[in-house]
């Protein structure tokens, strides 16, 4: 339901105005912020954890934390950037807490990729049809440290601007570029044998 206030509805308010109203306890402003960012946030989190239930839990926690600590948001960055920062921190925490789960997922991924080490690999066209690139990519990505994983996801998958990543990570654009470059190098090292196994490179 739209809340008429000064001739504006919550749909027409920008993020800053909504945040101001949400700080005053306006739940409709909060809901509007939630509706705006729930799917983009879910997409980022889902690509990070690769599990719908877990991603939804994290998204809920992100919005809860954000609204509970809205007084700490200094508006030096965009609200969406602040949300992504919270999401990335929660993803990192989850990754640390669920080492066992990661090991299980790794075993599962190994099982799925077991055919790659088969002496007679399937036809490359068939490989493309099976869309194994996802599995190859995530298998290599999961070998990286969490900060490098997040950088690859933010820059190469979500195609965020360097400036936004710098705001999320609270660092400089130059620093982000350097870290992304290193993360890519590390990822390519992990990817190379897998890509060779599927015949993508010689």
């Amino acid at each position: 339901m739209d809340d008429l206030l000064g001739g504006y509805t919550t749909h027409t308010l920008n993020d800053e105005q909504l945040v101001t109203r949400a700080r005053e306890g306006d739940t409709e402003a909060m809901e509007e912020l939630f509706q705006r960012y729930r799917q983009p946030l879910f997409r980022i989190v889902y690509r990070s954890v690769r599990n719908q239930d877990e991603a939804e839990d994290i998204v809920q926690d992100v919005f809860l934390k954000a609204f509970e600590r809205l007084h700490l948001f200094k508006e030096r960055s965009q609200f969406s950037t602040w949300l992504i920062r919270i999401a990335m921190n929660l993803c990192t925490d989850r990754a640390r807490q669920s080492q066992r789960r990661q090991a299980l997922l790794q075993r599962e991924a190994d099982h799925k990729l077991a055919w790659m080490t088969h002496p007679h690999p399937p036809d490359p066209e068939e490989v493309v049809q099976q869309n194994v690139f996802h599995e190859v990519f995530y298998k290599a990505l999961n070998q990286l440290p969490e900060p490098q994983r997040q950088l690859i996801l933010m820059r190469d998958i979500e195609q965020m601007e360097y400036e936004q990543i710098a705001e999320i990570l609270k660092t400089t654009v130059g620093g982000v570029k350097l870290r992304v470059m290193r993360a890519r190098r590390a990822l390519k090292i992990q990817l190379e044998p897998l890509l060779r196994a599927i015949g993508e490179i010689e």
Partner: peptide
């Protein structure tokens, strides 16, 4: 090949989230 893999991941469909505002409001 790296770019190709990245493209494949980008094009991977992401399911729609089932998180509803009522859940957030209740926990708030």
């Amino acid at each position: 090949a790296y770019q190709k893999a990245v493209q494949a991941v980008r094009s991977e469909p992401v399911p729609a989230t089932q998180v509803q505002w009522s859940q957030i409001a209740q926990r708030l």
